[in-house]
Design a protein around this nucleic acid. Structure first.
Length: 916
RNA sequence: GCCCGGGUGGUGGAAUGGUAUACACGAAGGUCUUAAAAACCUUUGCCGCAAGGAUUGCGGGUUCGAAUCCCGCCCCGGGCACCA
């Protein structure tokens, strides 16, 4: 049937794709403007860090599907913003530059150019005139401007925060560079050091960040992760006075006495609080520890600080702690209760101190049992239940016991809670009661508060490759923001990019950059030498794309108003909390500053699945060091007892000993397949089609060469079929088709029906991100066209058949255009049409043509399929039921006196006969 | 332990209350060819010669009808983890 000897019958994807790639660039096809009467649509990929390795076919799993969605939107008449840029600041680029001994300012643009080349290679429709690079001054000027905006709004502040200090390399490490408590290069145990650093006050927005989640179309899983990260919990802040303890060697001990605030979600169990626990790092520990306990406390503190990481990973956590010698006053019972320190209380959550209620909290229970601390039941499940009889904490159930306040108690003498159930309502009543106590001296015992797990956002990095923080420290004026007209604070060149041995950024080593006059008083000032972490740059980039070359503002309000917010955002689920939360925070700040008119940056979010490659590795023993060798591109934990083979190991270890596993495709694992080699071998269109067809967008995919071969096979096949039918194309088919319709055979009407059903399905599936079924629909249509071509044989088609074929020949390139744009444009040209399918309207779906003229009705007996009926559309329900009951198989089932009890009809689908 | 996904033929997957296995891979047979490849055609989830039967991780439930909804359990992947 086919004849590949004719050159035009061969699918010469190299010639086709090279030609159209060039032509799209020459005609500036993907350029968009902020004007016109079309509705806008903003679709965005998470912008990548351009690594030296270039993109892998894994990246195509992200960029190609969004490109398909964009191309469809353009054809549907939207003005589509589809930009791309580079998340160029940050550690990966810095580490790469250090490793290669290169200047990141030169290296990053080279890598970016390579990325751009590869993205053009696979035919992504980016408007490159809007390319941004977060490491260029024209971009980071505005990152700095936004820092100052937050500073002015009281949302940027300097606080003390711990960094990971590598005592051997004498550098600050990021969390990613700490593996198993050790520095990734030196292998030395990492220490905590506290230094002043800059924070953004994201916690002020905790409730709004929570509420906003209900207004966006994101996956429930991602929303849930953000909710948990924010970690809102309602409870009470309760104050405990310290009534004895260490004098700290000072004579005026009473003045040192303070109170301890705790956060508790269970203030209703206050009567059962028989001790308190402070985190070992709690600042009050020094003050309250008695001289006798000092040595023991110091030892415990030291032990927790050094051994935390190791112990956490080793044994099951046994509760340990040390008594400080101090006591606090339980405000409702008046009893003195001992104050302990223990590492199960975390400094970073709540107030770093808890009231411990062993009767109703399992951790407190274990601790009390171990150290012989009394247990008092607040809730009892039976009248005569005693603390000695319980073997574990009772967090739920029971009713409240009766408590008589002792003489020393602050609380009022009445106790209105006896008999109340253990539930949220009771907690509320107790909080209200606590708030009413001690109001005379203005000192409430407790008050209802909301606590969040969310911490303020640490933006300082003691690193070179980032946007300098636009702050000057003046001896006289303190912290002074750099005036806006002096922005950007340019990142200077340095001799050495690696972190310094002092823990400061390399910028601190350039006196001529650091020393400046104070903008306020003119006195001696020092520039802030910390830079901003990469997540700051990426928290607003989506807005820069709306107006990427604006020299007077981060973006014009008009451009942002026209384009933003982003209608469709696509990227990896690994950003579920960090980037996606920070961008939302920035957007709310900009909203409050009156700069943007919306509060949520990303209306619809889709997360693509990972791409796995079958990768050789070797078994490792648990003792076989897990210290990484530093050239890891990503920092995935090594899989339990297995490690990827290094290139040299592939030579030394015989293949029979290789252990294969599916792991994420990445440069560090040596399993990357690049789009370059695939495009060379099969073409970009085949690569696009394969990535879409192989699995649903969100699903993890196992890469196989077989898969792309099958995509290529389809491309060759559809090319051949279309090419063989093309001689029958008549451009005037729209005029001739109406008259031709009555002449068509059933088969031919069936082909036309399939065509219009496919128009409907492909459009709908792409909008729903169901690319795999859209491709399947195109394959089905191709199969029908193929069958029709075979049926036609060498016969000359009638004029009616020409009209029919012409409609298909012209529609197919348009239907395939979003998915295989190069092929589609080549076909378009072969039909004698100018321009690109990209600028053509999406085909109109004709409901009449798509309608079936016969339907299959399934006949069931008691829900079991018995027969099928082919009936013409429009057959009455009564007629269908009569036919169903007359079916041979139904009649057989009804034999033996079984009675028809009910007949259920679903129009157009089935008849279910319920028999006794 | 908690949270979020998921479990359907030999394989990737389709079907989200109404014909389970679309589409594709793989496999088998055929046509063409000196031959091979490619292409094209046919068959192909399981048991059974067949009629027919069982079947969507396991067990129960709701329903005329469940892969789909509900309850309990098992397994796999991902995330968080002493959160007071």
């Amino acid at each position: 049937m086919s004849d590949d000897s004719k050159p035009e019958n061969r699918y010469d994807f190299r010639a086709i794709e090279t030609k159209w790639r060039q032509r799209w660039v020459e005609t500036d096809l993907f350029r968009v403007d902020d004007t016109g009467d079309k509705p806008k649509y903003y679709a965005l990929d998470m912008f990548p860090y351009p690594s030296g390795a270039g993109i892998s076919v894994g990246h195509c799993r992200n960029y190609v599907p969004l490109d398909v969605a964009c191309r469809l939107k353009v054809m549907q008449g939207f003005n589509v913003l589809h930009p791309m840029g580079w998340d160029a600041f940050g550690q990966p680029a810095e580490n790469e530059a250090i490793k290669r001994g290169r200047n990141p300012k030169e290296m990053v643009p080279e890598y970016a150019a390579n990325y751009k080349r590869q993205l053009e290679l696979v035919g992504i429709s980016y408007d490159w005139s809007r390319e941004v690079n977060s490491s260029l001054p024209d971009y980071y000027k505005w990152t700095q401007w936004l820092f100052l905006l937050l500073y002015k709004r009281g949302l940027a502040y300097r606080g003390s925060a711990a960094v990971n200090w590598d005592p051997v390399d004498k550098t600050v490490l990021s969390n990613e560079e700490v593996v198993g408590g050790r520095g990734w290069r030196s292998g030395a145990l990492v220490e905590k050091r506290f230094i002043p650093q800059w924070f953004f006050k994201i916690t002020d927005y905790a409730d709004r960040l929570l509420a906003g989640l209900d207004t966006v179309q994101w996956g429930e899983g991602i929303k849930q992760q953000q909710r948990e990260w924010i970690g809102r919990s309602e409870g009470a802040d309760v104050e405990f006075e310290i009534i004895g303890g260490g004098t700290n060697g000072s004579a005026n001990a009473p003045e040192l006495m303070e109170s301890i605030h705790v956060f508790t979600t269970r203030p209703d169990t206050l009567w059962g609080a028989t001790f308190m626990v402070l985190a070992p790092e709690h600042p009050l520990v020094e003050q309250i520890t008695t001289p006798e306990q000092r040595a023991e406390v110091a030892e415990y503190k030291d032990k927790t600080q050094r051994a935390t990481e190791i112990e956490r990973q080793s044994t099951e956590r046994v509760k340990t702690g040390v008594f400080t010698g101090a006591y606090a006053d339980n405000p409702v019972t008046g009893e003195p209760i001992p104050i302990w320190i223990a590492d199960y209380v975390l400094m970073g959550y709540g107030t770093g101190a808890i009231m411990a209620v062993p009767a109703h909290d399992q951790r407190d229970f274990e601790f009390a049992k171990k150290y012989g601390i009394p247990i008092v039941l607040v809730y009892k499940t039976s009248e005569d239940q005693t603390a000695d009889s319980v073997t574990e904490a009772l967090p739920t159930g029971g009713v409240m016991a009766s408590f008589q306040p002792s003489a020393g108690a602050k609380a009022g003498s009445d106790f209105p809670f006896a008999g109340l159930p253990n539930n949220k309502e009771t907690v509320g009543k107790v909080i209200a009661w606590l708030e009413g106590l001690g109001q005379e001296d203005g000192n409430k015992v407790g008050k209802g508060v909301v606590n969040y797990r969310l911490r303020d956002w640490l933006v300082s990095r003691q690193r070179y490759w980032g946007a300098p923080i636009p702050i000057i420290h003046c001896e006289n004026c303190g912290v002074v923001p750099v005036p806006e007209d002096q922005l950007p604070v340019l990142l200077p060149d340095v001799a050495q990019y690696a972190p310094t041995g002092t823990g400061e950024s390399p910028l601190a080593g350039i006196p001529e950059w650091v020393n400046v006059a104070c903008p306020t008083c003119g006195g001696a000032g020092r520039r802030e030498t910390d830079t901003m972490g990469g997540t700051v740059c990426s928290s607003w980039y989506y807005l820069r794309f709306t107006d990427p070359h604006n020299a007077d503002a981060p973006f014009s309000e008009a451009a942002a108003k026209y384009w933003a917010p982003v209608d469709l955002y696509a990227g990896g689920a690994e950003h579920a909390v960090s980037h996606l939360l920070y961008s939302r925070f920035f957007t709310k700040v900009l909203h409050d500053a009156g700069i943007v008119d919306f509060e949520e940056p990303f209306q619809r979010l889709r997360n693509q699945g990972m791409l796995l490659a079958y990768t050789p590795g070797r078994e490792i023993k648990p003792t076989d060091g897990t210290v990484l060798d530093g050239d890891e591109e990503e920092t995935d934990e090594p899989l339990d007892n297995w490690k990827v083979l290094k290139p040299e190991e592939k030579l030394t270890i015989p293949e029979s000993q290789w252990v294969w596993r599916w792991v994420k495709m990445s440069k560090s694992k040596g399993n990357v397949i690049t789009p370059d080699e695939m495009a060379e071998k099969y073409g970009a269109d085949s690569l696009r089609l394969f990535g879409l067809f192989v699995a649903p967008f969100e699903e993890t995919v196992q890469w196989s060469d077989k898969g792309i071969e099958s995509a290529f096979k389809f491309m060759s096949r559809v090319w051949r079929i279309w090419t063989e039918l093309r001689p029958h194309y008549a451009p005037n088919w729209r005029e001739t088709l109406p008259a031709a319709l009555p002449e068509l055979s059933d088969t031919e009407r069936g082909l036309r029906r399939k065509l219009h059903q496919t128009i409907r399905k492909v459009g709908g599936d792409i909008e729903d991100f169901r690319f795999n079924t859209a491709v399947a629909a195109l394959m089905e249509l191709t199969n029908e066209l193929s069958a029709y071509r075979n049926a036609l044989g060498g016969n000359t088609p009638t004029p009616a058949q020409v009209s029919l074929l012409s409609e298909s020949l012209e529609t197919l390139p348009l239907l395939m255009s979003p998915i295989t744009p190069h092929l589609s444009d080549e076909w378009w040209e072969l039909l004698g049409k100018p321009g690109s399918t990209f600028k053509q309207p999406w085909p109109q779906f004709d409901p009449e043509a798509a309608a079936e003229d016969a339907i299959t009705i399934v006949v069931q007996v008691n829900g079991k399929m018995r027969d099928r009926l082919e009936v013409p559309v429009g057959t009455s329900q009564e007629e269908i039921e009569r036919l169903a009951l007359a079916c041979e198989k139904v009649v057989a089932d009804l034999a033996g006196g079984r009675q028809v009890r009910k007949v259920i009809s679903v129009p157009g689908r089935l008849v279910n006969i319920v028999v006794s």
